[in-house]
Nucleic acid binder design. Structure first.
Lengths: 348, 348
DNA sequence: ATTAAGGTCTTAATGGATTAAGAAGGAGGG
DNA sequence: CCCTCCTTCTTAATCCATTAAGACCTTAAT
């Protein structure tokens, strides 16, 4: 049985294809009687409705926006920061009645990302490392594109926070409390899967722009407080999980002299650091101060952190996608230091 | 400046459109030299690559699957059960290299859901109430469709758990501990936004099939233990949140005689019940036993719950979407009672 | 009776690409 | 020199629908 199209129905009834099309999309162009007959025949033949791809082609719009995210989706759906962003974006899409097409980024990179075939009206790119091929594919599509967090692409709207400033604020909080032996645990600097100590060279060579900026903020604040950055133990993680944070915590807290404060670039990691501190019988904040980032999982644990407006960024991204601005802007959203119980001056 | 298409490039170079198409999609059909020239001209003209909608139309595939979920996306991205399912589904999609098109369900129902225009190869419908118009739209598309949790649609694969059995197991756990004064707090029975006491008539008239089944399991187990169901206080919620659970908890625990055990159909709700118990200075489990559902947010709180294989269901749904079976199956996944510290025999 | 105005349907152009089959030309073998 | 086989491209059919403009027929008003 051949596929049923508008033409099939038209032939059946001896009317033109256009008439059948009107029956589906512009009821006012037809007599009620004929329209009813058309719909009935369509039903009898098992017509699946006007083909979506053909419609999209003809109308020039897709009714969907594409979303590219650096991590696997399984990870993204477990990450509080990503979820906050998704919520904002999804709500904007929902209000506009457009779909959200989540595109997979093949990790094994055997095949190219399915960006070329994505039937969308715009793209939202979130947190891609420098030089990621998927970004080039997206830009080649020449659709409205907004980038969130990283990397900044001149000529396209950008949404994020002032990473160096936010990083500096987190670090300044610690040095102003009097800490001088600071350790750092960061995830998402590189995408080569390495875990362990990172020297300043590797730190600065991070391929994730936002994290690079955040780290440089840490460094700037520490240096201006007289801390020798080269001596700051810096542990790099490849996975953002509580377990990874714990691993970093043990590494950092095992050093002599032991750091009195640890900066982390996610709340989840910070929770892991707290676990490690607990393992070692250290009191937080008396023996150790810990700062998280994002305020995505920090509240219950009483974690000092930098709050970023995840949902607002998502919502704003959605709006920019749906109504691309004439002048691409670089929008930096506010961030805020939230001081809770995980930080205090070091023991004298 | 008119839009650049394959034809534009072909004209520029004096070759045929087909040749240009081959340059993009079948490099082996062309001499390297010509291919290079084509790609260069394409670049110069700012060609955006083969149009995705046209490609999808011609090839007859979309490279994406559609997802319909009953709740707003902002809610879905905050619900642990939904997230677990999404993770499984997204991972399957990722492995197959297909996109996941999340479709909004307009709550205001002014406009129809954008199901007709979704350029997808298959649909996954999750947790829709009986008679929801979006389901009819989906079925009209005559694409491979799988339904998760509810409603069961004969002729299409179905994934979920044996709800009556799972509900009965939760309730049986309580009555076997000796509880006879049981209360129930459930969310997601109806979609009319009502909150408050629900009599058995309203309970049985629930429009969400899975919850209807789960509740009937509660009833069956209670009744066979000699509990008069009509006297079981039943509090219905319209939102699945900790705050809603707390509200239900206060309502249920304010009754005389006070229930010694409360059944809830989500972990989040159960956490709210625990909050209410704490408000009233009640000891859990000595004064009150609480059972959650899903094992999605239960572990840290030590909540007794029914575990369902969320991620596996999602992964299985993904597989069925990508390779539709000949015989549609009704797959019931295992569930398991996880007994933790929130349940105990009632005080003598 | 004439004509304007509607209502209802058809014609035909259009959106952009894919691919089987065929044509043209060159190279190599006998 | 002829035939065959490649390689490289072209031809033309096909995927399915939308919509402006035009044709035809009624109806109502003048």
């Amino acid at each position: 049985m051949a596929r049923v199209t508008l033409q099939t129905i038209a032939d059946r009834l001896g009317v033109s294809r256009a008439t059948v099309s009107y029956a589906f999309s512009r009821p006012d162009q037809l007599s009620d009687d004929l329209r009813r007959r058309i719909l009935q025949v369509a039903d009898e033949l098992g017509y699946a409705g006007p083909n979506a791809a053909a419609r999209s082609l003809r109308l020039g719009r897709a009714g969907a926006v594409g979303l590219l995210f650096s991590e696997t989706l399984a990870y993204a759906f477990a990450d509080p920061y990503a979820l906050g962003f998704f919520q904002g974006l999804a709500t904007a899409a929902e209000e506009a009645g457009v779909g959200l097409l989540i595109l997979p980024l093949p990790r094994g990179e055997k095949r190219p990302p399915p960006v070329r075939d994505a039937v969308v009206d715009a793209f939202c790119v979130v947190s891609l490392p420098d030089g990621h091929p998927a970004l080039a594919e997206v830009l080649a599509r020449r659709l409205p594109t907004v980038v969130v967090d990283e990397p900044y692409v001149p000529g396209h709207p950008f949404l994020g926070i002032d990473e160096p400033a936010a990083g500096a604020q987190a670090a300044r909080h610690l040095v102003e409390l009097g800490h001088r032996r600071v350790g750092v645990a960061m995830v998402g600097l590189h995408d080569d899967g390495r875990t362990g100590w990172a020297d300043p060279g590797r730190q600065r060579g991070a391929v994730f722009e936002a994290m690079r900026g955040r780290r440089s903020g840490y460094e700037a604040a520490c240096v201006s407080a007289g801390v020798d950055w080269a001596s700051v133990p810096f542990y790099e993680l490849s996975r953002n999980s509580r377990a990874a944070g714990r691993e970093a915590g043990h590494a950092l807290l095992g050093r002599t002299p032991r750091p009195t404060a640890i900066l982390t670039n996610t709340d989840v990691l910070a929770l892991g650091i707290l676990d490690a501190a607990a393992d070692l019988g250290l009191d937080v904040p008396l023996d150790l101060s810990v700062v998280g980032f994002s305020d995505s999982a920090a509240e219950e644990a009483g974690l000092t952190t930098i709050r970023q407006a995840k949902q607002e960024i998502g919502a704003a991204a959605g709006r920019l996608l749906l109504e691309p601005p004439d002048e691409p802007e670089r929008l930096l959203f506010p961030h805020e230091l939230i001081v809770r119980a995980s930080t205090a001056p070091p023991r004298p």
